[in-house]
């Protein structure tokens, strides 16, 4: 157990981040907090990918001329996550845009209040 914590602590971070993210999304009735939860959740996944790329004693994957020079950290997950971060940012932007619209229309960001308002419509 101890060994797991010391050698695989990065995965623990992943699990904790995912859990916090999901919990926030479910528990909080405030839309902005839900979006924050979503971001934390995604961050957990990003960390998971990056952790998977790690190589003991690995160096930055910059190949010198003539090749060789390993071992390298796998560059692929980094590239992927760069893309995923961009996607995540766009999503957050759209989500916040929608939140602004909701606030303009109903004057609240609380999910429970909102469902009461919508039921009255």
């Amino acid at each position: 157990m101890i060994e797991l914590v010391t050698t695989r602590y990065a995965y623990l971070v992943v699990v904790v981040l995912l859990a916090i993210g999901v919990y926030t999304m479910i528990e909080s009735s405030n839309f902005v907090k839900k979006i924050i939860g979503l971001n934390i959740f995604q961050t957990g996944i990003f960390v998971f990918f990056i952790t998977g790329a790690y190589h003991v004693n690995g160096r930055s994957p910059v190949v010198e001329s003539g090749g060789g020079g390993g071992p390298f950290v796998s560059p692929l997950p980094h590239v992927l996550i760069l893309t995923a971060i961009v996607v995540g940012v766009s999503l957050t932007a759209v989500a916040l845009g929608l939140v602004v619209r909701i606030h303009e229309s109903y004057g609240t960001l609380n999910e429970d209040t909102l469902s009461e308002v919508l039921a009255d419509d």
Binding site: F31, L91, V94, A95, L98, V99, R101, I102, E104, S105, Y106, L114, L118, D121
Partner: peptide, 11 residues
Amino acid sequence: GRSAVAALKYL
């Protein structure tokens, strides 16, 4: 407003 709520839920 309704469509914004639906969109956020969907998001």
